[in-house]
């Protein structure tokens, strides 16, 4: 994704060194060991453990006999109205934030790719959200949306408690999501735009293609791999979003912004249903993988 400059891999050592292979392997493992231990202990291990927990009735308390319950958590999940509500909100959030992020970022990238004045200002501003801690972004927008001291009501001449309004809270956090995720998307798309060969545009111009036609028939098809990659990543990041929304609304009002991850967090750490929450996480992982797989498969097929 990034365009880091890496040199070609060093030439293979001569085959004569074969005899030392076992020593080399030992050396390699020795060098890797300090990194492997924490990754296995705190990352791979917990992931497998978590998948296992999804099939138990584990409680997040010290005194509890955990037993295997098979797919009971899954059937409970399917029957849980709160889960479906949360799932629906998560789907709306992830799809709309990803789509809006993409459209806004594409527009900005196209503008930044032209020789306009104030482009520098916009470039710096476009990276700032990236540099801010997510918690500060959340708090900053809370100040913007604040019903009394916030600027938004004053600008629009309204008197709305944005983040506590049943129908407005979700759109309000979607705006924040778009603001937060635009920088990465813009930077990646801009890099993609700059790699489109100039000759294609010249040829297009010679053939009498107008600005729109050139954009539609040259820019977009050329950008396609970049677009597929960044929208996939954005989708995964958005569906797994937690911190930003936790700071903004904690899932309120009345669960209107309770994304699946917030729902799972509450189940696990407020109500202490560890097994159930793990199944929720597992189900979400499967949904994400399925959506991603379908999307990438379709894109690749059309690409042929």
């Amino acid at each position: 994704m990034t365009a880091t400059v890496t040199r070609p891999a060093p030439p293979r050592r001569p085959r004569a060194k074969r005899r030392h292979v076992s020593r080399q392997t030992r050396e390699m493992w020795l060098l890797m060991l300090p990194a492997l231990v924490p990754v296995l202990l705190f990352s791979v291990g917990p992931l497998l453990y978590g998948i296992g927990l999804a099939f138990t009735d584990a409680r997040n308390t010290r005194v509890h006999e955990t037993s295997f319950v098979g797919l009971e958590n899954f059937t409970d999940l399917l029957a849980d109205g709160d889960f479906w509500a949360s799932f629906r909100i998560g789907a709306i959030w992830a799809v709309s934030v990803t789509a809006l992020q993409f459209l806004a970022a594409l527009g900005l990238a196209v503008l930044l790719n032209q020789n306009l004045r104030f482009r520098g200002v916009a470039r710096v501003l476009a990276v700032v959200p990236w540099a801010m801690p997510p918690v500060v972004i959340g708090l900053m927008w809370k100040l913007v949306y604040h019903p009394d001291a916030g600027i938004l009501n004053d600008l629009l001449g309204t008197d709305v408690n944005w983040l506590a309004d049943f129908s407005l809270a979700l759109p309000a956090i979607i705006v924040v999501g778009v603001w937060t995720g635009m920088p990465q998307t813009t930077v990646v798309l801009l890099a993609g735009l700059q790699n489109v060969p100039k000759e294609l545009y010249e040829a297009g111009e010679m053939d009498g293609a107008g600005r729109w036609r050139r954009f539609w028939n040259i820019t977009l098809p050329q950008l396609r791999p970049v677009i597929v990659a960044i929208t996939s990543l954005d989708f995964v990041w958005n569906i797994n979003q937690f911190g930003l929304v936790y700071v903004l609304t904690q899932g309120g009002p009345g669960g209107q912004t309770r994304l699946p991850m917030l729902f799972a967090y509450e189940e696990a750490f407020r109500y202490r249903f560890a097994g159930y929450a793990s199944m929720l996480g597992l189900a979400m992982a499967i949904v994400v993988l399925a959506v991603l797989g379908l999307y990438l498969w379709r894109q690749m097929r059309e690409n042929r």
């Binding site: 705190f42 992931l47 994400v288």
Partner: peptide, 18 residues
Amino acid sequence: SQVFPFILIIIPLFMILR
């Protein structure tokens, strides 16, 4: 590690750390 939701890791991680 990007695709898997954090909840799947953090519950067992919390138990291990405890």
